[in-house]
Design a protein around this nucleic acid. Structure first.
Lengths: 110, 110
DNA sequence: TATATTTATCGTAATATTGCAATATAACAA
DNA sequence: TTGTTATATTGCAATATTACGATAAATATA
């Protein structure tokens, strides 16, 4: 199949999975880290920085944009990207909540 | 292609992406949440709880086991699963560090 | 031993993802 | 307008993922 049965899971479970999925690619991780590392927005040099072909970068940017965690502003012939901190923080909250789950009382068999 | 060019990224970037990828499926999220929610280990009822076929659950458990964040102990005819808290915490640290990235000084264009 | 129960593995179909070449589009510059 | 630059889109090949039926393997019980 290749497609997850989202309808049998809660909205929260699907949301966590969706966030995680988008972060589940090293190119997108690298893009995000780079966006965080610079004080200006990225206009153009992402292709040089990451080392993948331009269409590939463009595709990854699109996915990050679709999720809302980055945004792009047209600046002349180029587009400047940066992290959308509001949506990033929303994601952070959701993921933290999940990762911070703690084991119930005590386990017997492990 | 369908395969990520891991060789052009840092080990950290690949690690983050790998963790996120495994969390990027609602069934695996549901399995983990369930493992956290009960005080005993799961022996057998995961198939009923999640609502996917037994081979599918088994496959997801395998991926979680491969990543090291759960472990299974044979208990008679059944296998009992629980979260490996040590490895879970390692993952948590890595993911937190990434998610807690903060924007450098100030952005101009966003 | 024979049977039942539980989980893992194999094989396969449907779909998704990754990456890139070619091309299109958009905005500026001359 | 024409050319240049930067980014997006399209189309495709290779591979990965998801799900499940069939079956195997392992262990308990009669």
């Amino acid at each position: 199949m290749g497609v997850s049965k989202t309808e049998i899971f809660t909205e929260e479970q699907n949301r966590i999975a969706l966030y995680a999925k988008v972060l589940g690619n090293p190119a997108r991780v690298a893009i995000l880290q780079y966006l965080f590392s610079i004080s200006e927005c990225v206009c153009g040099d992402l292709v040089d920085v990451i080392g993948l072909a331009q269409p590939t970068i463009s595709q990854h940017l699109k996915e990050l944009k679709n999720l809302g965690i980055i945004q792009g502003n047209v600046e002349g012939t180029s587009v400047c990207y940066c992290v959308n901190m509001e949506n990033w923080n929303t994601m952070k909250t959701v993921m933290h909540q999940f990762l911070d789950l703690d084991a119930a009382p005590k386990k017997k068999c492990c």
